[in-house]
Write a protein that binds this DNA or RNA. Structure first.
Length: 245
DNA sequence: AGCACA
């Protein structure tokens, strides 16, 4: 008997139905029986070096936000839908056959949502004028770039990402289609903790210069909702905690 | 606190 944890109940159901009655031993004609567990699986935290109290064990199964912590301002923990129908897929899914040739019902390609391991408070929140490019700081030395990419590329409006590893620190730039997408991510993922990080939560600021643009010489633009800087806070009204609803 | 690419 074994237990397997999935990101969402929906994915668990898909896996259950796909594997149900799978003949896993042709000699004895043994058949696999899969059912939903009564309770969510508890997973012991691997690295718990951020000084924020995460009570050593994290209950998995969708609630990634420690109940005690709420980020400053209008922070609301991202709704489950944020991790839902995203387009990010691990690149290895196509080539790897986990069932080694056993006849198995073809599981429809399921997106692999990447959710932060949790959230932690963020220090020093000074920021730049809103634009479509985010600057990510407080990334640990050995931040897993795949995890980082999975997290941000799954957000609506994602365009590109660049990781910059300096001796001083590791930082990262992420471009979104427009200011609204970037602002949503700025809100939703502020203080997000990667499981590969040994620091606290990441710091998300707007980039000084948007992707693909030289330093702005012409001064602040009066009213811009695309990538250009100069948008005012009122441009962000309506963008609070969720990009999709 | 650390802001590249063009």
């Amino acid at each position: 008997m074994g237990f397997a944890l999935f990101s969402t109940a929906h994915m668990a159901i898909q896996a259950r139905d796909a594997l149900q009655n799978l003949v896993f031993d042709a000699d004895t004609n043994s058949v696999l029986r899969a059912e939903m567990a009564k309770k969510n699986l508890y997973v012991k935290r691997v690295s718990d070096t951020n000084n924020f109290d995460q009570s050593k064990r994290m209950r998995t199964g969708g609630d990634y936000t420690p109940a005690a912590y709420h980020a400053p301002g209008t922070f609301v923990s991202p709704p489950a839908s944020v991790w839902g129908p995203q387009t990010y897929m691990a690149s290895s899914t196509a080539s790897y056959d986990p069932y080694g040739g056993y006849p198995v019902a073809q599981v429809p390609p399921v997106p692999i949502p990447v959710a932060p391991a949790g959230y932690a408070p963020v220090q020093n929140m000074k920021d730049n004028p809103p634009c479509n490019t985010l600057f990510i700081g407080n990334l640990g030395e050995n931040t897993n770039e795949t995890e980082l990419r999975g997290l941000f590329s799954g957000q609506p409006g994602f365009r590109q990402m660049k990781v910059l590893r300096q001796e001083r620190s590791t930082v990262c730039f992420i471009e979104y289609e427009d200011l609204h997408s970037a602002a949503a991510v700025h809100n939703n993922l502020q203080g997000a903790v990667l499981s590969s990080s040994e620091r606290g939560g990441m710091r998300i600021q707007y980039s000084k210069n948007p992707f693909g643009r030289k330093k702005d010489l012409s001064g602040p633009m009066p009213h811009a909702v695309d990538g250009t800087p100069g948008a005012t806070l009122s441009d962000l009204n309506g963008v609070s905690s969720s990009a999709s609803q």
